[in-house]
Design a protein around this nucleic acid. Structure first.
Lengths: 193, 193
DNA sequence: TTGCTCATGTAACACGTTACATGATTGT
DNA sequence: ACAATCATGTAACGTGTTACATGAGCAA
């Protein structure tokens, strides 16, 4: 359900094929909602069945043909309705294997634990870089998209900024957390290795 | 897969029935890995098929009978092996409907957006309280559990502390983020309402 | 010549959610 | 009287992952 609305939300801006939709996903929505390509293809088919999108084939000579999905009026209405009905209970299942492993980490060696925290920090620092690259992609896309008025475009930018800020802030605090964990391990004399 | 190891990890400490296992889950692992009761029952059956746990019925007069699951030697080995083989690629799918809705929030009114951020802050503040209550439950449980040595018990406590700290820190930063979002909205003149 | 990107999809399986069924006890 | 807690489970459905199949163009 939620994934379908995420897809509809992206399609309100511009018609897209599944493959490229996934690219946009990876550069934006992906920070808070992940989806695989096969999932996206499946949901696009489901959305077309519902009449929320229509597809058309765009032939290409050098590359494989594209199936372009365009949102319908019914799709726009459905998306708008979903958005307005902000529910009290939201979907927030958590699946963080790293935390789980650290939670049970007492059976791991000190060196191993430290190594994992260091790797974690590295990943988070890479994430910071990836984010700024994605930002470029999104601003490029924003230019392609004709917004009805400049105010609504500015509103969209604000919302994206707020979400990007969240990603940045949590990323930052996680790096700090991991650094403190390493310190904590260094200060601890529970391991003899 | 991961859920099965999470369950095994808990069962290394003490034999439990599904219902109470879920309670412990909600008070600890739940911060980074959620699971429903029916999922836990299903995985316990799967674990027994694999020979990683064995169950026995504990009859009760006043309450329904309990099916107590005890981890086997094979189960302990499987868990230990899983833990040691810290993979490079970890499971971290994201499903955060709140962020998704805010991301597409430009079509929402300013008042509505502010309301949602305020609600978000409230929830986060409740979470802080819940955490400290859970902490009490966990320390009670820790007393029931006989750890082979005091050092390993202390190690376990350290790991739990590190994970609790993570939950606290991210929670804290999310409250700060939401407060800044409200400010940002207040400062903005993009809405006329 | 090996692997990546573009491009679409199917099929099988694994995992997660929701609803249903049952029923005693305890607290408000 | 009503709701919550304790306690276990099944069944149907919805969602997510992984592997497979196909194939051209392009860069190292």
């Amino acid at each position: 359900m939620v994934l379908q609305y995420a897809i509809l939300g992206i399609l309100t801006g511009y018609p897209l094929n599944g493959y490229y939709l996934k690219k946009i996903f990876d550069g934006s929505v992906n920070y808070f909602w992940t989806a695989s390509l096969s999932q996206i293809y499946r949901e696009l088919v489901a959305l077309e069945k519902k009449g929320y999108v229509i597809s058309s084939i765009q032939e290409q000579d050098d590359r494989p043909d594209k199936r372009i999905y365009t949102i319908t009026e019914a799709g726009r209405r459905a998306f708008q309705e979903w958005l307005i009905n902000f529910p009290e209970v939201l979907v927030t299942p958590k699946r963080d294997e790293f935390s789980l492993r650290i939670f049970f980490g007492s059976k791991l060696g000190k060196a191993e634990l430290k190594k994992q925290f260091e790797r974690f920090i590295e990943e988070r620092e890479n994430f910071t870089k990836t984010m700024s690259e994605n930002k470029k992609m999104l601003t490029e896309l924003a230019r392609k998209k004709k917004s009805p008025t400049s105010t609504s475009a500015a509103k969209e930018e604000l919302c994206m900024y707020l979400i990007a800020k969240r990603a940045q802030m949590t990323n930052q605090v996680l790096i700090q957390w991991a650094e403190e964990c390493i310190e904590e391990l260094d200060d601890s004399d529970l391991w003899k290795e």
